[in-house]
Design a protein around this nucleic acid. Structure first.
Length: 119
DNA sequence: CGCTTGACCGCAA
DNA sequence: ATTGCGGCCAAGC
């Protein structure tokens, strides 16, 4: 895990009118957890949301990933849905990246009991 | 404003 | 196994 620096990185945090959970803080937490997913393992959207402190907000994780810049270093491909399938529009690309890490699919599906990250 | 749309999820048929 | 639904919430129109 890398150091958490969001409190100093985002000017929005210094504005006191919103009482808590500004969008930038949530995004930063979620990014950090995604970044922490080890190679050859996967996490679900909901799992990342919970780890980041926002249980039940899986959609938020998908939202953030959908806005990810092209050359992002974030291992976005290690995030899959709760049924072990790919939600990302470009399935083949994501599946290829996962295959390169030794994660294989059985009938379009990843076995979560084997590959899901347990922090 | 209200309504729709998502890289979602759990549960009930 | 698959479908549907309600819950979730930010963005865009």
């Amino acid at each position: 895990m890398q150091r958490c620096v969001f409190a100093y990185s985002f000017p929005a945090m210094t504005r006191p009118e919103k009482h808590f959970t500004p969008a930038d803080e949530r995004e930063e937490m979620i990014r950090q957890w995604i970044n922490a997913i080890p190679e050859s393992q996967v996490a679900t959207y909901g799992q990342i949301a919970s780890l980041a402190g926002y249980p039940g907000q899986a959609r938020l994780v998908g939202k953030i990933l959908s806005k990810l810049p092209k050359g992002s270093k974030l291992p976005w491909h290690r995030v899959i849905n709760a049924s072990g399938r790919i939600s990302h529009p470009d399935r083949t690309r994501q599946q290829t990246l996962l295959a390169n890490e030794g994660i294989h699919f059985v009938r379009g599906r990843i076995n979560l009991t084997v590959y899901q990250w347990q922090p």
